[in-house]
Design a protein around this nucleic acid. Sequence first.
DNA 1: AACAATGTTCAGTC
DNA 2: GGACTGAACATTGT
Length: 270
Amino acid sequence: MPELPEVETARRLIADEALHRRIADVDDSDTFVCRPHAPGELRAALTGRTLTAARRRGKTMWCETSEGGPDLGIHLGMGGRIVVTSADGQVAEGGGPRRRDAQPRKPEWDRFTLGFADGGSLVLFDKRRLGRVRLDPGIDALGPDAAEVTPAEFGRLITRGSVAVKARLLDQSRIAGVGNLLADEILWQARVHPGARTGTLRPADADRLYRALESALASAMTRGGVHTGDVIAARHPGGTCPRCGAEMRHGTVGGRSTWWCSREQAPPDR
DNA sequence: AACAATGTTCAGTC
DNA sequence: GGACTGAACATTGT
């Protein structure tokens, strides 16, 4: 699930609940999640320190650490969540869909753990194991955060080149934070065909896409996740457009499963 | 059992 | 070198 809104929720959770608590132990034994670090490397670097700030760019988070320690980078991957337990055992989650009943949490799905001296912990919980933890993650390769990109920058980024517009929205080096569901929602809101080539977009298209980006992000934050998007519920065989009722189409664009309205998001003429 | 899944990365081609 | 494509990655759910 994690796209920008979920990652921001997880970041806030860390900022609110996990800072300034002394790290007493670190479980970094999952060598895939912690690659390229060897087991024990993160423990050695973090034990005794505290997290002092939680930051985010796109879907990448990192925590600054005390005494000039390294940054702790965390990526939620395809389905990771952050679970913070307080000193008195209260559990708080961030990064997954907001829901009343907590999902089952098998201990073996805890992929990385900071144990605090107060008895609580911060856990990267991730069934699919595609999440990632690393020291000093470089964020230079990421484009501007999707929540902060200016209309002018966005217009440039979304019209340059000739790739399918959805592939461009998903390109983290251009705009950081948009994932597969958010991309479908943005394109649907803006009534742009996902396969339209970036070079064929007119300024009016770029404007609608920018406004759709803003509103899709705001709505996902308010409602509690990108899965709450208006068109997301129609993303299944037989689904119909929530606006006009026309059949939804399905295909692969930019290597990802893609759904669009057969009437309102007509293929570009060529 | 085969296939798809909300993400990233790397090898390969143009 | 840049732009672009497709497969691989680990695991679960359908």
